[in-house]
């Protein structure tokens, strides 16, 4: 009894692009690229979450600096009155011990410095900070109130720059991937030129050959994607297991980014042969 032989595998057996070494390297190249892109996407996602959490905590927070000689009774009075203002969720004085701990890395003799009185005020998301600031400045005219806006803007811009750099780097890598696929397909077809001529003479259409070459490229890049993404997932899982801080940011969107964004190389691998192979066939056959 004859073995069944599906048409695509028959054509793939005939036009075996794996004969070219560079074509065989497609799996390894895609694997490495998908791993790097996957980890890059996950890192960018986690950075976004870290930034969002920090932004959330800072954007509804006021830090009030009172002079070191501020009257403790007046400070207590302020601390008691602040929660009565609409929107204030919390008001508390930062302890001297905490202040010294903050200053220690910056100043050699932090213990002997006259320390300001620092009050942290948290307010709810929909509340306006203006009445709170007015209230503080009525109680202490010399009070300095920091709403963290300059820092928020500075850090926000830095995060955006980092994310843009990550996207730019990914674009460069994808362009290199496209170039690699062009080289691999071109070399593969040149290596199999006699077979290509024969298939054309036997009636193979450009569309059928393009589809077959595209499938061969896609198959190899998908294998590379599976291994590369699995490696990236394993690295992230191990890193999260050893770092509880990181674990709290490995959310479902981060895992999704790790799995979905590396699909770009296989997508490129589908598009490049569609554009390249018909032109090559016209030139070679």
């Amino acid at each position: 009894m004859m073995r069944s032989l599906a048409t695509p595998s028959m054509l793939t057996r005939a036009l075996n692009l794996k004969q070219a070494g560079i074509f065989r390297l497609l799996v390894l190249t895609t694997c490495l690229l998908c791993m790097v892109i996957g980890l890059g996407a996950a890192s960018t996602g986690m950075l976004q979450q870290v930034y969002a959490d920090w932004q959330l905590s800072r954007s509804h927070n006021l830090t009030v600096y009172l002079p070191p000689d501020a009257d403790p009774a007046a400070v207590n009075q302020l601390l008691k009155s602040l929660p009565t203002i609409e929107g204030v969720a919390f008001a508390g004085q930062v302890s001297n011990t905490q202040l010294q701990a903050w200053l220690k890395p910056l100043v050699d003799d932090a213990g002997n410095l006259p320390l300001p009185t620092v009050v942290e005020v948290n307010y709810r998301g929909n509340a306006s900070p203006a009445p709170i600031i007015d209230h503080i400045q009525q109680a202490f005219t010399t009070a300095e109130v920091d709403d963290h806006r300059p820092m928020l803007q500075q850090v926000g811009a830095s995060v955006r720059r980092l994310q843009l750099a990550a996207v730019g780097l990914s674009m460069v890598m994808l362009a290199l991937m496209a170039l690699f696929i062009v080289l691999a397909v071109r070399t593969g077809l040149m290596t199999e030129l006699p077979t290509l001529h024969l298939l054309v003479q036997l009636g193979a259409t450009d569309a059928a050959l393009t589809r077959n070459v595209g499938l061969q490229v896609l198959k190899r890049t998908l294998v590379g994607y599976v291994f590369g993404t699995a490696a990236a997932a394993a690295i992230l899982a191990v890193a999260a297991a050893f770092s509880p801080g990181l674990a709290s940011y490995t959310s479902i969107p981060v895992w999704l980014a790790l799995v979905v964004i590396p699909l770009l190389p296989p997508v490129i691998a589908t598009l490049v042969p569609l554009l390249l192979v018909p032109r090559l066939l016209r030139r070679l056959t």
Partner: peptide
Amino acid sequence: FRLLPHLTVRQNVLLPLSLAGAL
């Protein structure tokens, strides 16, 4: 001859049919 050496005799003969459509 221009046979494809890595294919079997039967696969070589089947080539024109596979190019024309499903086997």
